[in-house]
């Protein structure tokens, strides 16, 4: 790996100011960043270690939880409050990576991890994320793991996180500190961007911005499901995953919050799909209509065409389970 200067931030203020220097990257768990640096995909001149900032705490806030940016994935999954009130988040975290990686990976780092598109990882291939304007070798290539929703002619990569999918369904909010100390809040569903013609810009973060926490509101439904389909039983990224947070009232679906992984450049939510479910009694017919809406603009690349019927089936299975029927 190319050498770099290593700095340890002692305050958020110092971190955001230092991060304004060109080619500076924050270092959390390092599980993705160091891998990319070894491969020459990321070549920062400076690494700014944020692990010693006071961002490693989970605290109760307005009936919800405030999860510090450097809380480790394993600690978040095991937290008794998360297991009890946000089981979909525990399940999603436990579905991702390995025990060792979860012990290192941070909350903010998980959100900021890069795609695992094999063409992004291979520096001999054209990739608009690595080199804007270079083209996309994935299109017309091996596309089993690629997007079926929200992709563009410039990029068909998917976001690899499980955690972020659960957080999207829980309507989490990302807390961001800008240089100068101003804090703002962005809905998780708006945090990541679709690729468009600038797939190298993946989030709404501006230069110097530091994620300080993710805030979970009080859960909008007690029926929480995370399902994940992958090529091996453990330690693999999702082909398709779904997080469902559902509240039932007198035999009808009062609210349904659904987010999908493995389908797009970001955790995928569709307000139309949720609206078509709400107020209705659950039935396979209804779930089919929801799937029709979700997939009306789905577009396969050939090798990933199977994701379209697979998404329909995983949606139906999750909704059957969440609404009290048989899975």
């Amino acid at each position: 790996m190319k050498d770099f200067a290593y700095l340890r931030a002692s305050s958020c203020d110092e971190a955001t100011t230092e991060a304004l220097e060109p080619a500076t990257r924050f270092l959390g768990g390092g599980t993705n960043l160091l891998d990319l640096m070894k491969l020459g995909i990321e070549t920062p001149a400076r690494l700014l270690d944020v692990n010693r900032l006071d961002l490693g705490v989970i605290e109760e806030l307005d009936g919800g939880l405030r999860i510090g940016a450097t809380v480790r994935n394993s600690d978040l999954a095991a937290d008794p409050r998360v297991r009890r009130s946000y089981p979909v988040l525990s399940r999603a975290l436990l579905a991702g990576a390995s025990g060792q990686l979860r012990n290192m990976a941070t909350t903010a780092g998980n959100l900021l991890q890069r795609t695992r598109c094999p063409y992004f990882y291979d520096t001999d291939m054209a990739c608009n994320k690595r080199t804007p304007g270079a083209g996309c070798s994935a299109i017309g290539g091996f596309t089993r793991y690629h997007a079926i929703l929200g992709a563009s002619d410039a990029c068909i990569a998917t976001h690899p996180s499980d955690m972020a999918v659960a957080m999207a369904a829980l309507e989490a909010v990302v807390e961001i500190e800008a240089p100068g100390g101003a804090r703002r809040h962005v809905h998780l569903a708006d945090f990541h961007r679709l690729p468009g013609d600038t797939p190298h810009i993946e989030t709404c973060l501006e230069p110097g911005d530091l994620i300080t926490a993710v805030i979970l509101p009080a859960p909008a439904g007690e029926r929480q499901i995370y399902r994940k389909i992958r090529d091996r039983a453990s330690y693999a990224f999702a082909l398709v995953s779904v997080a469902a947070v559902v509240r039932m009232e007198e035999g009808r679906i009062a609210t349904a919050r659904l987010a999908f992984g493995g389908l797009a450049h970001k955790p995928w939510r569709d307000a139309e799909v949720e609206a078509c479910l709400e107020g209705e009694p659950p039935s396979d017919d209804l779930f089919d209509r929801a799937a029709d809406r979700l997939l009306q603009r789905a577009w396969g690349q050939g090798e990933n065409d199977f994701k379209i019927p697979l998404t329909r089936r995983i949606l139906t299975a999750a909704l059957r389970e969440a609404t009290g029927g048989m899975a």
């Binding site: 290593y6 390092g30 599980t31 891998d35 060792q100 990686l101």
Partner: peptide
């Protein structure tokens, strides 16, 4: 593998198992 995929480099740091290949000494 030197990329966090195989686990051969697993060590225990402050009581937790981690991949030492994806950990910088200086941290």
């Amino acid at each position: 593998c030197d990329h966090g995929q195989c686990g051969a480099c697993t060590v225990i740091v402050d009581g937790r198992r981690i991949n030492s290949c994806l950990t910088l000494l200086c941290t």
